[in-house]
């Protein structure tokens, strides 16, 4: 083949910068994962492969409790957030505009727009107020807080799915004597399912990864895995933190890849 000719899309150096970006994005993560398998206590000098830090994390009672709390929190919060988001998405798509719709939209997306630290401080103050009135200091505060900031993440893919859905399918079902509830169960819900699953996964990952709001809302002894790690980072770090991180990374990456595959599938 002769000369490729004039490439209108070419810009000098762009490909180099882009590839450098990909390398730089992944290098720290790869190193972090690599040193979680280090036999020594160093996170810079490679001394050989071992599972030792995974074993040590597994045997660390604090880690185990925090991990279970994180999982429990993420499961409940993503379930609550996704359920609320499905209903909200049904109420904000495919109907004529109504008064207050813009405000509703802003409220649902508000956790995305307000800096996390501000929400965290607001929750700290508000929950402290409730605590002082009721004397209740249990874990419910964390569940409510996580459910709230997960809602917009669950809402986005569900809404996108609903908007892309063919309205005539439901009309056809209604025409064939389906009552509204049965139409929803038999037609809308099955079509919506990939969106719901995607939304739930995003919510799960967001809850699992949250540091700031949890740090401010949690009472003593209510550490999640991320807040436990944040505490550990102040001390001298051993590859045990790398091992915990690697497990969390694996969960997140799996979820995101599944989300990606789900959102790729068209109606």
């Amino acid at each position: 083949m002769a000369d490729r000719g004039f490439d209108v899309q070419k810009q000098r150096g762009f490909t180099t910068i882009a590839l450098a970006c990909f390398v730089l994005l992944y290098t720290p993560i790869v190193l972090l994962v690599m040193y979680s398998f280090n036999v020594g206590t160093s996170i810079a000098i490679w001394e050989g492969f071992s599972w030792r830090w995974y074993v040590s994390a597994w045997e660390n009672e604090q880690v185990k409790v925090a991990a279970l709390r994180s999982l429990y929190l993420a499961v409940v919060a993503s379930f609550v957030a996704t359920s609320a988001a499905v209903l909200a998405a049904l109420a904000t798509t495919r109907r004529p505009a109504y008064r207050g719709q813009t405000v509703v939209f802003a409220i649902i997306n508000q956790p995305l727009m307000v800096p996390e630290i501000v929400t965290a401080v607001a929750l700290l103050i508000f929950f402290a107020l409730i605590k002082s009135f009721t004397g209740y200091t249990g874990g419910a505060f964390l569940f409510v807080a996580h459910s709230a900031f997960c809602i917009p993440f669950a809402y986005m893919p569900i809404r996108a799915r609903l908007q892309g859905m063919d309205l005539t399918l439901e009309q056809a079902a209604a025409d064939l004597y389906g009552t509204p509830l049965r139409v929803f169960r038999k037609v809308t819900l099955p079509l919506l399912w990939p969106g719901i699953l995607a939304g739930a996964m995003l919510a799960f990952v967001i809850s699992l990864d949250d540091v700031v709001i949890t740090e401010f809302v949690k009472a003593a002894g209510q550490d999640t895995l991320p807040t436990y790690m944040l505490g550990q980072l102040r001390r001298s770090v051993t590859p045990e933190v790398n091992a915990i991180s690697t497990v969390l990374l694996a969960i997140s990456v799996t979820m995101v890849v599944i989300y990606f595959i789900l959102s790729q599938r068209k109606n």
């Binding site: 083949m1 002769a2 000369d3 490729r4 000719g5 004039f6 209108v8």
Partner: peptide, 8 residues
């Protein structure tokens, strides 16, 4: 126009 280089 110059957006294709001829092969020959």
């Amino acid at each position: 126009a110059g957006f294709n280089a001829p092969t020959n």
